[in-house]
Every structure is written in C-alpha cells, then in structure tokens.
C-alpha cells in the first residue's frame, strides 16, 4: 500500500518522506539502499535500539565517551581542590571563607588516602550528569515539536513498526527521485509530510 497525503495548500512545504516497514530485515535492507544513494539528513525510527543499524546506515561511532571522561576527570580534580582548600590550605578564595588546615588522627592536613572516596564519588557524579546532558545535547532533545509527529502512523514507531524518514533539508532530496527510491525499498506505507509555513 503506497499512498500520499494530498494537501496542496500553498502555505505548506514538504518536510520529509516517511516510509514504514514491518520487519527488521526490511528496514535494514532499505537503510542500506538509502545510505548508498548518498543521503545525509535521514534517519531510521525503531521502537528499540536495533543492532546492526549503525552499519546499515553507515554511521560513525559516537563520541559521547569523550564528554563523560572529561567531566569525570573534572569531578576528580574538583574534589581534590575542594578538600585541599577546605582541610589543608590556608587562604580565602573569592571571599567564600578561609580554608582551615586540620589534623585528624595524626594525619597531615590534606593527606591523600582519606581523599580517595570523595574523589571517586565526585568523579562519578560529574561524569553522570555530563553523560545525561551530553547525550541530550548531541541528540538535540528536548525538542518541542517535529514534523514527523504529523503522521498518525508514526505513533507505531514506539510500538512495533519501523520507519525511515528522509528530510527535505537534505541536499539530494527531490520530491520524485526520493519517492522513487523509497518505493523501490518496498515499504508498507509511504507518506510525504508537510509542515505549515
């Protein structure tokens, strides 16, 4: 079944093509075709992370680990500086209050071994928040709306159907050729989604 939403209102312009597939193999095969056709701004929408799609879509490995690592180390450094300032050094930084060197249990102020647990915990804390916000930053969420939600069928994308979307912003996007490409991949449903101007 292939059909197209006919909304010829002049204020609307095409936003993306949405093709629906029933099986993981069908969408993987289609993704390879779209990848080989050289599209850049396109995506697969699946209800769960599907293994092998990185390869089928030709995606580069994610770099989120660098963000996590950097902020994790920043957390460790913060912990060291904080504990040194408060329990070992003796000056007033930005008028937040004097550090106070204290000797407990006969250990010198700022003894390293007792700092390890808090260095570790703050490292984890910073890393965790950096990973969450880094993830949201990379995938550009939260996002208030997206033209893809115009489609009623797309509600199944979080249930049991698989979709490929090719956005009109892609340099290779062409109403007829893109449509022909998607049709050749054998979708169960194909729709042109338009957004209001």
């Amino acid at each position: 079944m292939v059909e197209q939403a006919h909304n010829q209102s002049s204020t609307k312009r095409p936003a993306l093509y949405l093709a629906e597939y029933d099986t993981p193999n069908a969408i993987a095969k289609a993704a390879m075709k779209v990848r080989d056709a050289g599209y850049k701004k396109w995506d697969c929408h699946t209800p769960y992370p599907m293994h092998g799609m990185d390869e089928a879509m030709g995606l580069k490995p994610t770099k989120i680990g660098f963000i996590s690592f950097f902020f994790g180390m920043a957390g460790v450094a913060t912990a060291v500086l904080m504990m040194k300032y408060m329990n070992a050094w003796d000056f007033n930084f930005l008028d937040i209050g004097w550090g106070y060197p204290i000797v407990v249990g006969g250990k010198p102020p700022g003894a390293f071994p007792s700092m390890v647990p808090i260095m570790f915990e703050l490292g984890i804390l910073f890393c965790g928040f950096a990973t969450l916000f880094g993830l949201l930053g990379i995938i550009k969420l939260p996002r208030h709306n997206h033209p893809i939600f115009e489609s009623e069928r797309f509600e199944a994308a979080t249930d049991d159907k698989f979709f490929i979307s090719i956005e009109a912003g892609d340099p290779s996007f062409n109403l007829d050729r893109t449509r022909a490409l998607l049709e050749s991949t054998g979708p169960t449903y194909l729709e042109l989604i338009e957004e209001g101007a």
């Binding site: 697969c44 769960y48 992370p49 990185d54 994610t62 949201l136 995938i139 709306n145 997206h146 994308a157």
Partner: peptide, 12 residues
Amino acid sequence: LGWRGAHRHWQH
C-alpha cells in the same frame, strides 16, 4: 522530551 526513536539517537 520529544523522543522519536531515531537511530541516530539510539546510537548515542
């Protein structure tokens, strides 16, 4: 948060 199950999101 506007999640749309995109594989480019799932990957990260």
